[in-house]
Design a protein around this nucleic acid. Structure first.
Lengths: 192, 192
DNA sequence: GCGTTCATGTAAAACGTTACATGATTTG
DNA sequence: CAAATCATGTAACGTTTTACATGAACGC
């Protein structure tokens, strides 16, 4: 691997995998599950069809290595020192203009284009949905805190759960604010 | 059959353009600027090299139309009734499993993989960065509120600015919380 | 007149999803 | 012993980025 490859900006999947493996060894199947259950909802999505080839590539390059083989051809990977160094470089790199893509947020951005009644309908749904998502994560976080032994290393998902929780709460409060704003404009209309 | 097996076309760019044009007519150049300055930071990114072909496609299909041609080959597009109907359908469609991709958030997720001192360094930077971004948007929002004439239609960016503002505030508060948590675990270590 | 901004475009490469595929192990 | 889950993979297709390209109008 040449040094120039390290400057390629679009290798987020590579670093997502390195990051997960830096926390603890895992198989491609387990990594896929982590994407489905936590990473994929807020940070980065990936399917197994992209993950497996990428793991092979990372192993070829020496950034990760197989540390265990199990039933059904299962291969557990761990990060190497090389890989850890590369991950740290990427995490510390203060690069701007990073990839941002969120279809749900896009829908909220486009509300301004709708008639007030339509916007109100969608915002009302957003309030409910974000309350639901926040509640889910609140439960998850509380359970994690309750079961974690004192002085133990913080579980990987704990920071992530709190992040998601606060993001959904903020979305809910924004939607409530937006509802009030839009209804306010509607009242202006009827007063004219 | 899981949700992933279902056919799902990813046409977010199409709807992003329809949404922007539903608010007001614009040229490809102006739309590109909107992606660069607001949409692209939170909702959806696109470059002019993707936008121009997509506009031509939308025009061919009759979802938008050229309403004005100006200097330097500039073409101003407006949404058609067909296009507006399609947009509304998409916005109202309660689809799950939408695209989520955010490199900055990914970096925060991977913090758990680092040694506490490294994580603290990155979180401290996140606190500063999110404060900066929130302040920018606060100024923008206040200026918009001050200049908006009473009873006038809410400017497109107003909802978006508030959304961004609240998201950055939430990120900042999360980072502060995470710093405390990580320092707390560090103290446990030194107490053992 | 000269550099900057405006304005649009094409093509190759990289990235990501869908469809297709195979077989082993576990659970009931 | 059948269904579900575990576990990995390839190939075609669609999406997005990067590199390359052109020229008109504006500001100084």
């Amino acid at each position: 691997m040449s040094i120039y490859d390290m400057y390629h900006p679009f290798m987020s999947l590579r670093y997502a995998l390195l990051g997960l493996l830096a926390y603890e060894p895992a198989s491609g199947y387990e990594l896929t599950r982590q994407f489905d259950h936590s990473l994929g909802h807020y940070a980065w999505q990936a399917r197994h069809t992209q993950i497996y080839p990428e793991l092979n590539k990372l192993a070829d390059e020496g950034a990760i290595e197989v540390v265990e083989t199990g039933a059904r051809g299962r291969r557990t990977y761990a990060i190497t020192e090389t890989g850890r160094a590369e991950l740290l470089t990427w995490l510390s790199d203060p690069t701007e203009h990073s990839v941002v893509r969120n279809e749900g947020v896009l829908r909220m951005f486009l509300l301004s284009a709708l008639e007030p009644e339509e916007a109100i309908k969608l915002l009302t749904r957003e309030v409910q949905e974000s309350a639901l998502q926040a509640e889910k994560l609140r439960t998850l976080a509380q359970r994690a805190d309750a079961t974690a032994a004192q002085g133990e290393r913080m579980p990987f998902g704990r920071l992530a759960a709190e992040f998601g929780l606060r993001l959904w709460e903020a979305r809910r409060e924004w939607a409530l604010w937006a509802l009030e704003r839009i209804r306010g404009y509607g009242e202006h209309d009827s007063l004219r």
